[in-house]
Amino acid sequence: MIGNFVSTRFNYILGWARKYSLFHYPFITACCGMEYMSTAASHYDWDRFGTGWTRFSPRQSDMLVVCGTISHKLAPVLRTVYDQMTEPKWVMAFGTCTVSGGIYDNYAVVQGIDRIIPVDIYIPGCPPRPETVLDGLIKLQEKIQKQEQAWRWKKRK
């Protein structure tokens, strides 16, 4: 009983810590990158919401921000970047291109990055406005808070 209580509280605290220190890796390939920049830079400043550091190494980051068109030529690269990230990790699909392929329904473009890697939050828009992105970010944080957290000594069910 008390063990359950402790582990639930610990789960809560971990979730709280994780949602407010989302080191992110920007995987930017196209025009959505501009909107990522304006969201991340001082004007909209998503650091206010705890998306602190931009790590340019997938091994040090918790959130993969995929901005822009992903072509079939690039798909293995994105897959490798995702595989290199350490747990826990979340993926944000930023812009219509990453959500569904967007306006590019042709031979070259992957129709949504969820065909390559699992996605936690979808942000539509071509490109999405920074407010939309912040809204998506807060939704992702809510999701992280509610999630079952994993930690090293946790008993596996």
């Binding site: 079939h72 030529k73 798909a75 293995p76 897959r79 329904d105 042709n106 031979y107 070259a108 992957v110 969820d114 065909r115 390559i116 890697i117 699992p118």
Partner: peptide
């Protein structure tokens, strides 16, 4: 791919799709 008789949605992925 830019030939007119190339199928518009013919995709040739390099990795396994989910």
């Amino acid at each position: 791919p830019l030939r007119k008789d190339f199928p518009l949605r013919k995709r040739q992925p390099r990795i396994q799709m989910r």
